[in-house]
Amino acid sequence: MGRALAVFIWVMTLATVWMFVDGRWWFPESITAHGPAYDRQFLISIIVVGLTFAAAQIGLGVMLWRYGSSRRGGNERAVYSHGSNRLEVVWTIVTAVIFVSLGLMGQRVWAQLHFNNAPAGSAQIRVTAQQFQWNFHYPGADNKFGRTDPAKIADASANFIGLDEDSPGAKDDVVVPTLAVQVDRPVELVLSARDVTHSIWVPELRFKQDLVPGLNISVHFTPVKTGKFELACAELCGQLHYKMKSYLLVLPENEYREMAALPPAQFKTRMTELLKKYPLGSVPH
């Protein structure tokens, strides 16, 4: 029984490691500036994790293989030992150093994204999530956002974010259900939700952030590859949570600028066309 268990544990360890090494199921290709750093940190962590995992499982298997009672002499007893202080100290320090340093390393991407303001010249887009739909609010050609007021929200007339049409700068504002950004230009998203907590997530961006009702949370990233990607909601928001889907379009500079200068109606048509034009995934440029 012991040897069978040992063999199973080893086989399971191999199978698990294979699943991660095989590469058939892995991250989609990263499309942001911070993506490679993220991937590197993930790789380092998963290697440490994998080594720890494999070492512990193999060690466990060895114990089971070697010390089964049926494999030892009739009256032979186990080793009488209560342990060793020195060994405890050794592995405490070794694991502490590894884990704490990994933890400190793991802060880099986080700091880069969260401790700095969005760089100058980044495009600001306001995101208002609702059950079960995304609304992306663009300032239009004048680069000025109109005022929004929850009292003006009326789903019936498709004013999902309560845009006050009469406020200054509102005339050319566009609210669309798809997020389009310009490649190689930092984007600042100002996130808020109008009913419950949602979470914006594009796996290719290596980025996720909750949209909290009542708060404007500002985040930023820089996409570096063009293409069309699926955008999901990652925080439970109600019965149709699984259908709260949208797309992220990363457009080349000319296409984006051309679209951004269009008046609202044409902006929307253009975006629909672009959505159709791009296949899912990144486009080499």
Partner: peptide, 21 residues
């Protein structure tokens, strides 16, 4: 309990490791 540092002699199994540590 763990053997105190003065009486580690009981740990026959770990003799080499003990010397090392």
């Amino acid at each position: 309990e763990l053997p105190s540092s003065g009486s580690g002699g009981r740990l026959r199994a770990f003799a080499p490791l003990r010397r090392l540590t």
